[in-house]
């Protein structure tokens, strides 16, 4: 899906006058709402991460780095390391499935494309709860899959297909695949077919057209797609919780446990701030990477 980019509408020749009161009337409500519901909570979270923890799930305002010190522990490093490993593995699988899928879909007739879009949007919007539950049914010992695998001897009779790393990974790929396909959809559908045809008239086979023209042209998009998967995986909560074991728990579960279970909101906030900082760093890195590539090209 195309994320909201505040790109301006095509500039008209004649700019209409901007009556300030008109803009104020239009934007005051939305601005207040965004201020209260987005900016204030964000500041609050930062403040919370620096607050002093009191007993019984309470906290008092302060400025201490107690919680951030906990980020320097091997435990936190391990959690982040695992989250990143899961995210990157998921990203590689997702992007390498989603990119060709989106490419093929954009080259279909309208009716088939619309059907695919409905299918993708439908499965994308399904609750993580529901998907996890479905996977539980699918992977359960009494399910067909386990039975079939046991029958061919790949699984001990009565053995379970979860909780484990592959189950978490498969479910995450499932959750993300429609997102990533829809993310690639606009760019790939915008690709001028004449560009590919030009490659063909110069002797390129279909495969080399794809690898030498389509893929390099979409380098930036692919990188951003990977980033999207990483962000989503870091926020994934139910999948690792239900289909994984504690070693496969992502940062999201630990944040939730700190906040809801242990009642240590400042620690949860510190974790969250760390995650956001990490995300921003990744974003900047991706931008730099694609810019350098562009400059080199």
């Amino acid at each position: 899906m195309s994320t909201a980019e505040p790109s301006l509408a095509a500039a008209s020749v004649d700019q209409p006058a901007k009556p300030r009161w008109m803009l104020a009337g239009l934007l005051t409500g939305p601005a207040l709402y965004i201020l209260i519901m987005a900016i204030v909570p964000a500041f609050l979270m930062v403040q919370l991460s620096l607050a002093h923890r009191e007993v019984g799930g309470l906290w008092s305002p302060g400025f201490e780095l107690t919680q951030y010190r906990q980020l320097a522990t091997p435990l936190f490093a391990r959690i982040m390391g695992f989250s990143l490993l899961l995210a990157l593995t998921g990203a590689v699988i997702c992007v390498s499935l989603a990119f060709p899928a989106a490419y093929f879909i954009t080259r279909m007739r309208r009716r088939a494309q619309v059907a695919w879009l409905v299918f993708l949007l439908g499965s994308l919007s399904l609750s993580e709860v529901l998907i996890v539950f479905a996977f539980q049914v699918l992977l359960s010992t009494s399910g067909t899959l386990a039975g079939a695998l046991a029958a061919v001897g790949l699984l001990a009779p009565g053995g379970a297909l979860y909780p484990n790393f592959p189950a978490v990974l498969t479910c995450l790929v499932y959750l993300l695949l429609p997102y990533v396909i829809l993310f690639f959809y606009p760019a790939l559908s915008q690709l001028d077919p004449e560009v590919e045809q030009a490659a063909t008239t110069m002797g390129a086979s279909r495969l080399s057209t794809f690898t030498r023209v389509v893929l390099p042209m979409m380098r930036g998009q692919i990188l951003t797609g990977v980033l999207l998967v990483v962000i989503f995986t870091f926020g994934a909560y139910l999948t690792p919780l239900v289909l994984g074991r504690p070693p496969q728990w992502t940062i999201a579960i630990h944040i939730n446990n700190a906040a809801m279970g242990a009642g240590n909101l400042p620690l949860a906030a510190a974790y969250a701030v760390a995650v956001v900082v990490f995300m921003v760093a990744l974003l900047v890195l991706t931008r730099l990477l694609s810019r350098r590539r562009e400059a080199a090209a």
Binding site: M37, F232, G235, Y237, I255, A259, L265, A268
Partner: peptide
């Protein structure tokens, strides 16, 4: 674009 859990924490704190 921010991870769901972070948004959830922000809002629950709010």
């Amino acid at each position: 674009l921010i991870p769901g859990v972070v948004a959830a924490l922000m809002l629950s704190a709010f």
